[in-house]
Design a protein around this nucleic acid. Structure first.
Lengths: 240, 240
DNA sequence: ATTGATTTGTTCGTATGTATC
DNA sequence: GGATACATACGAACAAATCAA
């Protein structure tokens, strides 16, 4: 089940400490963290790298690691660097779903072209409306590769499919490719979202890979939650 | 000027090799790269990490590093993991600008609240329309912190301000915070972009930091280029 | 189907450089 | 200037996944 890779588990513990406000403005120093977790400096730095890549830290040489505040005045911020399955990592945030369709399909030419999933691949196709704290959040169309995820019971569609896949098949997301765009609603989409036809909505298209870059999920979601913001962090060294 | 940090320069060379199609589907093995650049395995792996974080690779244990194709059928893909200053890293892509306003201002309460830039900070405020290959690309409103970037000549607004800042003050972007959202155009914005008032447009808000996390740029840009997609890559270890 | 070689992943140790306080 | 704290780079060993014989 779990993960016995040290730096991963330390990273998760540091993240939890940040979210639980045990670490408030600054992380302990590397030396203190080495002491705390009983590992080498390299391992601590690997763990901190992970936390940093989640967009939770600023690092200042000679000074320390400072905890990032990514909130925006009056806006819902979804941290995409944090994980697609549960991007909103707040204790009391409740995400509910209403299934609109649930099918086992075979990738046709159209889908294959738009998604690059090989023609003929067997997929679960699940369309659902999602609600955050009772408010309409997004319209999601998700495909799961059957050869990786052999079976999804329909009831699971009402809660987190990622959690089900994790608990049942021990499949974790290790890598995601994300595309943000705006798309126009067609008649049916508009109806489901209580919007007018042609309305431009923020759309996130995702490819989720599990261990060793095996694709297990492809999805696109149209977000209608008011003032929603997708956050992510990027780093660069130098440019050519 | 330049950067004598080995793994950064190796990373840049690998990226160039990928973009120039010298490496086509796969990177050489770590052992070969160690040989090629005459450095230790750790350093090669650090360099590869950088390339990976740019969203250019898939890594498969026991097999190798595979080059990612992030293109999408009939769509312009901007790789945000790659660098905000020049996200479109193609030789013949030409980005031109038309300055709408250019001012030296002081952060007021409103700006300070929305951007978290301290009240009273002296800033260059530059509003411009940007054109990609002659086609309207975005409406950008950018603020540069004067204490970090002492002077920007107005003419520079027509080309890359990031390049100017880099060449003149040796300031590089090392970290960016990005927020994607949709915003409604006000009357003036609509006029500049040839859209109707209230039209919903894809908006990227960015905070760009230079060495040791000093903020030097804050901006928001509304993108109207048809079918534009913003790509970025995210990785996870395990989830709680 | 097993083995063995190849290739990437994790973890340790150590030394030195550089920015901040 | 000195102490603290993060950054870079080397070397080494073993683990785990893949691939080919």
């Amino acid at each position: 089940m779990g993960d016995n890779i040290i730096y991963h588990t330390i990273a998760e513990q540091i993240i939890d400490s940040i979210l639980n406000k045990e670490f408030k403005t600054k992380l302990p120093t590397e030396a203190q963290l080495m002491e705390l977790y009983g590992v080498s400096r390299n391992t601590i730095r690997r763990a901190i790298d992970v936390v940093f890549q989640r967009g939770l830290l600023k690092r200042v040489q000679g000074s320390g690691y400072f905890i990032n505040d990514i909130s925006r005045e009056g806006k819902l911020v979804v941290n995409l660097s944090m994980g697609a399955g549960n991007p909103i990592r707040v204790k009391d945030s409740k995400l509910e779903s209403k299934i609109l369709s649930f099918d086992l399909i075979t990738a046709d030419k159209q889908l294959s072209k738009e998604s690059k999933i090989p023609l003929g691949t067997k997929l679960y196709k699940i369309v659902r409306l999602r609600y955050l704290q009772g408010d309409l959040y997004c319209l999601e169309t998700a495909y799961y590769v059957k050869s990786v995820v052999p079976y999804i019971p329909k009831e699971v569609g009402q809660r987190s499919i990622f959690n089900f896949v994790k608990e049942t098949y021990d499949i974790n997301v290790t890598n995601s490719e994300n595309y943000m765009s705006v798309t126009s609603l067609d008649r049916q989409q508009a109806k489901h979202l209580n919007k007018s036809i042609g309305s431009q909505e923020l759309t996130l298209t995702q490819y989720n890979y599990c261990k060793n870059n095996v694709l297990f999920n492809y999805s696109y979601s149209m977000y209608v939650y008011p003032n929603i913001n997708f956050y992510f962090n990027s780093t660069r060294s130098t440019e050519s």
